[in-house]
Amino acid sequence: MSESVTFRFEVDGSDFTSAGQASVLVKKHLRQLGIDPEIIRRVSIAMYEGEINMVIHAGGGEAFVTVSEEDITILLSDKGPGIADIDKAMQEGYSTATDNVRSLGFGAGMGLPNMKRYTDSMDIKSEVGVGTDITMKVNLI
């Protein structure tokens, strides 16, 4: 692979049952590119967590996945309410999700920690009332 490839996805914020479609597509694309299965697993789980966050909190958003020779970069961008306290949001078990979301098995406060766990770097830029951009990288070499 000499050039980088970018996939763009729209995350539908209204439908909980379709959440995960972008991540499953990413998984398929990466498999076609011949990426190592454990890397694919890490990228697609990190992306699914981000996707779920966008559905729960932000009313949807956009996701970009770029594959280069060195790494895979996932950019998640939304125009949701923003994260008021990023340090708190990064704590395992901290969640602002509603009871309805929790009854589906989400809202365990593990989303952002999992995204960090499964990627080699993660950067959160968020402004309350404006939106959130999260960039994650998984190294390929």
Partner: peptide, 21 residues
Amino acid sequence: SSDVWITIMSNINILAVASLA
């Protein structure tokens, strides 16, 4: 990967989780 996932959750989202994990 390749675990049996034992759960009482049966909503549609478990399929995405099973597939991704």
